[in-house]
Structure formats: structure tokens, C-alpha cells
Design a protein around this nucleic acid. Sequence first.
DNA 1: AAGAAGCATGGGAGCGCTCCTATCTGGTCG
DNA 2: CGACCAGATAGGAGCGCTCCCATGCTTCTT
Lengths: 348, 348
Amino acid sequence: MSRTIGTGNGGRATGLPTLEEVAARAGVGRGTVSRVINGSPRVSEETRALVEAAVAELGYVPNRAARALAGNRTDAIALVVPEPEDRFFAEPYFSEMVRGVGAALADTEMQLLLTLAGNDRERKTLAQYLAAHRVDGVLLVSMHAGDPLPDLLEQLSIPVVISGRRAADETLAAVDSDNFEGARAAVAHLTARGRRTVATITGPLDVYGAQRRLDGYRSGVAGAGLDADPRLTAVADFTEQGGRLAMRKLLEDRPDLDAVFAASDVMASGARHVLRESGRRIPDDVALVGFDDSAVARHMDPALTSVRQPTEEMGRTMARVLLEEIARPSPERPQIVLPTELVVRDSS
Amino acid sequence: MSRTIGTGNGGRATGLPTLEEVAARAGVGRGTVSRVINGSPRVSEETRALVEAAVAELGYVPNRAARALAGNRTDAIALVVPEPEDRFFAEPYFSEMVRGVGAALADTEMQLLLTLAGNDRERKTLAQYLAAHRVDGVLLVSMHAGDPLPDLLEQLSIPVVISGRRAADETLAAVDSDNFEGARAAVAHLTARGRRTVATITGPLDVYGAQRRLDGYRSGVAGAGLDADPRLTAVADFTEQGGRLAMRKLLEDRPDLDAVFAASDVMASGARHVLRESGRRIPDDVALVGFDDSAVARHMDPALTSVRQPTEEMGRTMARVLLEEIARPSPERPQIVLPTELVVRDSS
DNA sequence: AAGAAGCATGGGAGCGCTCCTATCTGGTCG
DNA sequence: CGACCAGATAGGAGCGCTCCCATGCTTCTT
């Protein structure tokens, strides 16, 4: 035996005040300080004041790790971004959503963990991490329809909120934008300006949001009694190149079209190039409307009319829903659909 | 006394396997498992295999909180983003840098904590958090020259790396792009194409990077023996509106200019509008070059020639430098300057 | 006036690790 | 052949909290 008393490993002093020291300073017990820190009502006013003074004097900040270990919660949520999904990283999604989430967390003790789930190895590790309850809740963005992660987390009863429903029968808590109505409004706007032959360039239809935009387009077309020729619909993949190809096909099939609704600004940008090449003027000959209201839309020439999604608000809402679920677990899985807004510019 | 034996608080079973259980399963001691988990060489091959098998069978994942508490490190770094600084959130900075940081961290146990330091209250909390060693290191992006945070962290001997030097005499570890050379190359490119009266629209000159871009412009102008009229320099603020105002002023003072180097794409976009309004054609009458190579540049009409910064690589490099400093603390404060690249498009 | 009841409080136990020392084993050396 | 050494391992102590039980008062109750 040696005189390793009061040392152990922790001998590495951090110099930071501990609960115990605050207690000593305030002349109370450890438990009482804990109660004050955590806002328990079972503390007398005087004692509370005493403790708070000690906390302030020492500049005490609770040790998160100790708290997590003892309390079996981490006060942290993870934002999981499937990295191959480049689209999400495109402006404006990522920044705005992070901003919204950050805003919702600002008044909380919650930390935000950013997890880029890239390759499969990472996704495995990730599943393990989250499974090991390393976080109190998870925000999932831009999930593919077939990804096992969401349901896996649900099974582990880790609170989850996803952005964008994966399908019409989404079972998880989700926050989505009103893709259907946004698209419908875009078409309505075009018809209100006298366009009669409105084409659309869609995203990949296994992405639910893209499907809903197409549904909204169809509803708009039907509602105005327009030409519903299937050759006025071209499926693309949300890329500029895809937008170009789709636009070429549309012009080939229906050279008489007088408006195009593209399901993303980037695809609209591709379409614009092709329209220009074909000698058509925007908006004189063909009106063009995009979706996302990104920087691309604002700086396009002519400036692109586009459907704005409240991305930041989506982030804020997701965080709020998640915090609520963490605070008061319930079997409910709220699904919130936020309205979109048509931003009219020069292209229509 | 009660028979509260073996319960205490921790009675809340997580169901997750612990080190102890792995040890029992493998028929070894706790310490041995710990050694295996942490890759200590002081374990025999057989024992290691035994333990690894037990780990795999039980699906053991170490508890981060316990590890942090016992080891006095969190295996997490924070990315601090001063939120009022909208510019950083603009494409492409934020996404690309996060991506780079994420990539560098992918092969690590390190977690990435995203901290939006908004208002003053948050910044205080932040200082406390970081001061309380809640993280192993900090990445600081887009810091203002006068912000106390960087030096505060340095004093607390928390490893820090910042993006972009704050001044010529930066003392902290920093990763920057070669603003000077990027600007010089832009001007060289313009003169190589026969432009003789090259103006510039700068960012706010208390931002070091903006100053360096101006220096680079001047060097380019001097190197080519061009007109160095101070009226060919207009200070703006990185916004589109600022770009417009600056461009108007330039045209007023020097209507004969035949090229403009804007220190950001967004300002270039503003300049473009004013040039158009004045009846000038791009690039025929006036060539235009931007900086950042953002989405704005790619989608502008005509597509904007721009100086690309290796943002993702900056993120990756920052993370690497930070990890190195965490692993092997040293008094060195490396400052790495990454090269920029001129992306020539139709505007010049 | 004695017991019941309600608060505020103190502090033990334990969360799951890491670190470190003590122990054990087998081999080496004079 | 016994002292010595090095490598491998076991397990105690402690990290800084949260929970919960027990304690000591004070205030009611009957």
C-alpha cells in the first residue's frame, strides 16, 4: 500500500470549482447546491441566495460529463447529415437549418452535435453511438426513403424528428414544408399571368417532396383547366445538368410551351440555359419558376421567381418538437407542415 | 438505513453493456479491457483477442460521459460560429468548411460540437463552457479583429485554431487562404487580356482578408505598370448593395475603366447590375472578376470569373492542426496559407 | 402536551470509466 | 538455486455529479 490518498487518477486537477467546493463556500450540503443548480423548488429562499452567491463568486459551471454520467442524459442532441447527400449541403438548406436549430437551442442547456454520416463505416459507428444513448435526441435531415436509421432510433426509443416526410404514411415525428401547395401556387401564378401551356421539371420521384411538387403542379394544371399532356412533365434529378436535359426534351416534345415550373432553382438554372440557346426569351416567350429561393434564384438573370421554403423555421420547429419530446416523452409523433411562399421576380 | 444496496441513483439501467461486463465475459480484469479498448501495447495477444471477442459479442461501446469524467477530456471539439456574422453563413463558406472539418474528424473519435455564438449573453455562456474545459479544442471561424474570445482561450491553454488571420501579426494557430496572391492573379489575368484601367471594389478594410485582397490588387496593378489612380478603388462591405454603390462611384469617377475586380462574388453581382444599367456590356466593355467562387458566380449571367478559396480544405486543415495540438501540445502556433485558384468564366 | 405531518437539508451510494499501484508469473543471471 | 527483473494483469480509488433516504425542525392536530 502507498499513501495514494486523495489522489487516485483524478489527481489531475482542473482548477475548476466543483459542486462540493460551492457547497463548502455556501456552508450547505452538496445536495442543496445541486437542487439550486437544477432549480428544484425544495430550497428555502435564503439558502438559494446563499448558494447563488457562492456560485457567482467561484464562477462555478457544472461539469457536463459528471452530470451526464450521474443523470444518464447528455443534454445534447445530434444533427445527423447523410453526407453523400450533396443536395442538403447546397445553399440554402444547411446553413439556414443549422441556424434555426441553433436558435431554438439558444435558450437551452442543450448542445448541438453535428454528425456527418458519410460512408457505411461511419453510419455503423453512428448507429452504435446513438444506440449507446450518447445523445438525448436526434434530428435527421434529408433521409433517403430506404434508410434504416430512423426506424432503428425509433425502436431504441431515442426521440427523433426528421425533416421532410419520407412518404405519405410517415410514422415518425416530422417537419416538412408544403411542397404541394408551393407547386400549386407556382402554377396558379403562371396561369394568372396568362400562361396556358405550363411544363414541369421534377426531382427524382422516389423523393417524397419531389413527388408532392409534381402533385401540386398537376393540381394547379387541372384547377386551371390547362393542357395536361404528360409530355409537359420531364423527370430530372435536382441537378443543373438534369435540368438542361429535361428542358431539351420538353422543347422537343412541346416546342409551344410558354411556361416551365422547375422543382428546384438549380434545375431552373439549367433550363434557362437551354431556353436561351433555343432563342427563347425569359419571361417574354417562356416564363420560368423555380423552387427553394436560393442564391441562385436571386442572382439569376433574369432574377428567378421561386417558391421559398421556411428552412430556418423548419430547423427551429424540428428542434422545438424534439425538445418537447425529450422533456415529455409521448407516443404522439407530430407532423408539422409549414407553408411555402412564392417570391415573384423577373422570370415570370 | 435501508437496503438500498446496489442501487443508488444509477439504478436506472441503460441496458447497455459496461466495461465491467465485458471484463467478466472475457474472464479478465477491468483494467485489461480498458487497455485493449485504448490500444495499450501492454496486453498479450491472446488476451487482446479474448477481450475483442467479448466486445463484439456484447456490442460494447464505451460510455463517453464516464470516459470524459475519468479521463478529464471530452473527445470533442467545438466549432464556434459568431452568428451575427452573416457572411460566414453565406454559401459556400459554412457548408464547405463544416464538410472539411467533418472529413478530418471522420477517422477520429472526436465529436464536433457546433456552437452558434449569437448575442452577448450567449458569448458569455460560451466563454464559461469552453473555460470549463468542456471541449478538447476549439475551431474559431470568422472572428472579428476585436473579439476577446481567441486570446481568452489561449490564456486558458485550450488549443485553438482560427480561420483567417485577424491581422498581419496573428499569434494564434491559423489557417488562411492566400488572399493576396488570389487578388494579384485576378488582376494579372485581366491585364493579360489587355485591360488597362482596372478598378477594385474592396471589403471592409478592418477585415484582414479584405485588406490583403486590396494589397494583392495593388501589387498586380503596380506589377503591370497600370494606372494606380486611387479613384479606381472603392471600399464596400461585402454586400450586394455595397457593390452597387461602389460601382456607381467608380463609374462616376472613372467612366473609362475597362475592368473591375470585386473582392467578393456578391459585390460583383451588385456591380454587374450597375454596369448593365449604365449600358456597358460584360465582358466586352468592362471585364468583371469576383472572389469566392460561390454559387452566385456560377449562375451569374455572364458566368463570373472568380477566385476560388479552398474552403473545404481549410476546414480539413484547421481540424488537423487542432488535433495535432491536442495530441501533442506545443508552443508552436502554425500558420498555414492555402493557395487560391482563378476560375475563368465568361465575365472576363 | 404528545404525536403526526411537512419542509429543508445533509450526505451515502453509485454512474462507468481511467490511472496507478500491487501482485503474479515466468524467465534470467551470478 | 535463490535473488532479480520484466511483462501482464487485477482491482482500488476517484472523477463530479444526481438521486434518494434519513435526519432534524417546525407547525399542526387532537
